[in-house]
């Protein structure tokens, strides 16, 4: 199976967010067209209990398959993946997910930087990072890594973010190619 993905690569979008980002996802997901030609990976800061409420909530807003990541699961186009609570989410060179429960980064696990940086090394120019609303500096370094590896960095327009600290951090570090509102996010992902 892994060979399939080696010979037929597909775009990957990693979406990171913290406070105020669930509201964005609830508006963004219904706008996505099925079948999705990319793989969508969502990393949001959440309570560190292993409950499935968030994936159920998000799955209600889309007809695209949406699931919490299982360890060693292959990354496939057409699926929306949610990082599980209390683990960092990484990608292996054979395009499978790895989970890691090492130290919190930026006071959080999962950390957006960890997934952004790991995916950048694997997907290069096939990768887009999208950073949403949040009150934490997580994500900006990861966007830099994505750009360095040839991928694209999108940041939610601060004036549309419930909490604009996270987008502002990315902007201050010049870690973006484009500032986007929700409609532009939908159009971008549908256009991949």
């Amino acid at each position: 199976m892994a060979q399939d993905w080696l010979t037929r690569p597909h775009p990957v979008v990693v979406i990171g967010g913290s406070s105020g980002s669930i509201e964005v996802l609830l508006k963004l997901l219904p706008g996505l067209r099925s079948p999705l030609r990319s793989a969508l990976i969502i990393v949001v800061h959440r309570r560190n209990t292993a409950d499935s409420t968030l994936s159920e909530l998000l799955a209600l807003r889309t007809c695209i398959p949406l699931k919490e990541v299982d360890e060693k699961e292959p990354v496939e186009a057409g699926v929306i993946y949610l990082a599980p609570a209390d683990y960092h989410l990484l990608i292996e060179t054979d395009f499978t997910f790895s989970l890691d429960d090492s130290e919190k980064i930026n006071y959080t696990r999962p950390a957006i930087d960890v997934t952004f940086e790991s995916a950048a090394g694997i997907y290069g120019s096939w990768l887009t990072g999208l950073l949403l609303s949040g009150a934490n500096a997580d994500g900006a370094n990861g966007l830099l890594a994505i750009r360095q590896a040839g991928g694209r960095a999108l940041v939610q327009k601060p004036e549309t973010a419930l909490v604009d600290f996270m987008p502002q951090q990315a902007i201050q570090q010049q870690a973006f190619d484009q500032l986007v509102d929700i409609d532009a996010m939908i159009a971008y992902i549908n256009g991949l």
């Binding site: 060179t93 090492s102 090394g121």
Partner: peptide, 9 residues
């Protein structure tokens, strides 16, 4: 061992 995690560490 999983390489992604080792690489980070």
């Amino acid at each position: 061992y999983s390489r992604a995690s080792l690489t980070r560490r």
